[in-house]
């Protein structure tokens, strides 16, 4: 398969996230999740045909064809094998770990992958900015999920040393603190408009993995308000395969709904 020369950052983010999914994953999605849902559909159409996706946490193994509505919308349940009753079934599968993979974005993300989408400010009850709320991330952080984090706003306002409000539990205070609380799994990968990061296995600090074309590790560090674990050499994020890109553009997300997620981004797509 050849790699593409012409691609945009939204496309690179979707393809890179798709590559992280396998046929063993059982993934459910939440609100405003165009990039992960596109990645799920793309992975399933390529290297991960066995991947299970529960659309909007309702439509089991849904086959909407392409991204045709917002990510919690019933349009996306098309062709599913079951409408999952929420109160009993969905929450049972989530608690017992059957549904194990979840993707999260937030207004603030810290060095241990804790996430905040609730408030900006030092006093919850006197917020400088009132954000939408913790939603599914409040649950999934504590319920043993393998969490994939994405963000279209890689800047010091989003990537902060410590979140103002810990809505979603990541690696907590790093090291063994998450395990000590009895929580399994945790944040795996962070894909932004500038780079890909993971978590250093012992300290659980965020670590640079690769930089997108035209971006330097130094630029990433400047746009991050905490010190990243910086390997001696940092490769460029592999360009998308041409076939992945074609499927994304023509089949998975032909309306380019994923670009809605770049509203507040400095990266133009």
């Amino acid at each position: 398969m050849g790699t593409a020369k012409e691609y945009t950052i939204d496309e690179l983010m979707v393809v890179t996230l798709a590559k992280a999914f396998t046929s063993d994953d059982i993934i459910l999605n939440g609100t405003v999740s165009f990039i992960p849902v596109s990645a799920v559909l793309l992975a399933r159409a390529t290297h991960a045909p066995g991947l299970t996706w529960v659309a909007g946490a309702v439509g089991v193994d849904a086959q909407p064809g392409s991204v045709i509505g917002n990510t919690l919308d019933p349009t996306m349940w098309k062709g599913c094998v079951m409408y999952l009753p929420q109160y009993e079934d969905m929450w049972s599968y989530v608690h017992r770990g059957t549904l194990e993979t979840f993707c999260i974005r937030g207004a603030q993300i810290d060095q241990y992958g804790n996430i905040n989408n609730s408030i900006i400010g030092s006093d919850y009850h006197k917020p400088k900015v009132r954000l939408p709320g913790s939603a599914g991330m409040g649950d999934m952080g504590s319920l043993d999920k393998r969490v994939f984090i994405w963000s279209t706003t890689h800047n010091p306002r989003t990537f902060v040393k410590k979140v103002d409000f810990r809505a979603c539990v990541g690696w907590l205070d790093g090291g063994g603190s998450r395990a000590k609380l009895g929580l399994r799994n945790g944040p795996q990968l962070v894909i932004t408009d500038l780079c890909v990061m993971d978590f250093e296995p012992t300290s659980k600090r965020m670590r640079l993995v690769s930089v997108h074309r035209g971006i330097t590790p130094k630029q990433v560090q400047e746009q991050t308000a905490f010190e990243l674990v910086m390997p001696a050499s940092v490769p460029e994020t592999p360009a998308p395969d041409a076939e992945y890109l074609r499927l994304l553009r023509e089949v998975v997300d032909p309306k380019a709904m994923r670009k809605i997620e770049f509203r507040g981004s400095a990266t133009k797509v």
Partner: peptide, 27 residues
């Protein structure tokens, strides 16, 4: 758990009322 207009963005009146401390938010 969350208050928004999904793909249409923030629920602006919720946001304004919370920021003005005119609304109690029990999240």
């Amino acid at each position: 758990i969350i208050i928004n207009l999904d793909e249409f963005g923030m629920a602006n009146n919720f946001r304004r009322a919370a920021e003005a401390q005119k609304l109690e938010v029990e999240e």
